[in-house]
């Protein structure tokens, strides 16, 4: 009885050594992601349980609203839908034109995107890490590096996928970086998270770069990970310090990183096409054909026979 109660130092050393081995292995390799995948069958119910208070308060808030409130909101949404519909009408013709022009340039940036909506069911408690948990997993076709957005801008990307849930990192996390460009003049830059939810940093911007306060940052798609052209943030501060090698540029994220409840997951399907005109020796030059189907644009690949 007493012998069992005194902890053995040998056991401690073995467990500590094992832990250290696991830490190193998990940090240096990707092999444990499958272990995490299967353990998350067990952890998903706990995550859902932790979401219950929040979901309950949301439900209470929604079900206790007055009829006049709802009618007001309904009217607002209808007006908004009308405005958006008008924009979409123009967008259809514009994107058709864009595709035609790109086809002339034999450019490969032809992407078809499909969007699925997920719900945030958890937020990382560690204030130093900006990570969220989403209620969609591998079963819904989620994969690592998938970009996520909210209604007003880019939010982040998926870093870990379980069968039922997945974990995403926000663009404001200090270990996250993403390539952007200024919407006005296409100046390229890298946006790095600051660790604060309402602040992003642009690193290594030369003092001579044409960036002013109020510029809109959009994703440039250069990292091959995020789709091109989604709003990332608005420049809030540009400072030229002669003592510093680079300009100090800060931005405010467009997405409501701390307020969104639903996120959009953007799947992309790249259509293979040569980046540059192929040499004449290669007779097979893929040609892209545009089909217009019920307001939606679909692109099909066709190979010309010589």
């Amino acid at each position: 009885m007493f012998a069992r109660n005194t902890p053995s130092i040998m056991k401690l050393i073995i467990i500590l050594a094992l832990s250290l081995a696991i830490i190193l292995y998990d940090h240096k390799t990707e092999h444990f992601s499958s272990v995490r995948y299967y353990i998350s069958y067990l952890s998903a119910p706990i995550q859902n349980l932790a979401n219950v208070p929040d979901a309950l308060s949301n439900w209470l808030k929604n079900s206790s609203r007055s009829r006049t409130d709802l009618m007001e909101e309904n009217a607002q949404l209808q007006a908004q839908a009308l405005l958006l519909k008008r924009r979409v009408q123009k967008l259809i013709s514009l994107s058709a034109e864009n595709i035609r022009l790109r086809e002339l340039l034999k450019s490969s940036d032809l992407l078809e995107e499909s969007v699925s909506v997920g719900e945030i069911i958890g937020v990382d408690q560690d204030p130093a890490r900006h990570e969220i948990i989403i209620n969609k997993g591998k079963r819904d076709g989620i994969y690592v590096n998938l970009p996520i957005l909210d209604a007003s801008g880019l939010m982040g990307q998926i870093i870990e996928v379980g069968p039922l849930t997945s974990r995403a990192i926000l663009i404001s996390d200090s270990s996250h970086a993403l390539p952007v460009q200024i919407n006005r003049n296409s100046v390229r830059a890298i946006v790095v998270g600051s660790g604060a939810l309402d602040r992003l940093l642009l690193t290594h911007v030369p003092d001579t770069a044409d960036i002013v306060v109020g510029d809109i940052l959009v994703s440039s798609g250069l990292g091959q990970r995020f789709p091109e052209g989604y709003p990332v943030g608005i420049v809030t501060k540009v400072e030229h310090d002669p003592g510093q090698a680079f300009a100090i540029v800060e931005a405010k994220p467009s997405a409501q990183l701390d307020r969104s409840r639903h996120v959009m997951l953007v799947f992309k399907k790249q259509i293979d096409a040569p980046l540059q005109p192929q040499p004449a020796t290669n007779p097979q030059i893929p040609k892209l054909e545009i089909q217009k189907k019920s307001g939606e644009l679909k692109m099909a690949r066709e190979i010309d026979k010589p």
């Binding site: 832990s19 272990v35 995490r36 952890s43 990382d124 560690d126 990570e131 974990r167």
Partner: peptide, 9 residues
């Protein structure tokens, strides 16, 4: 696993 930290920490 729950907090997504490095396994073993």
């Amino acid at each position: 696993v729950l907090q997504g930290t490095v396994l073993g920490q």
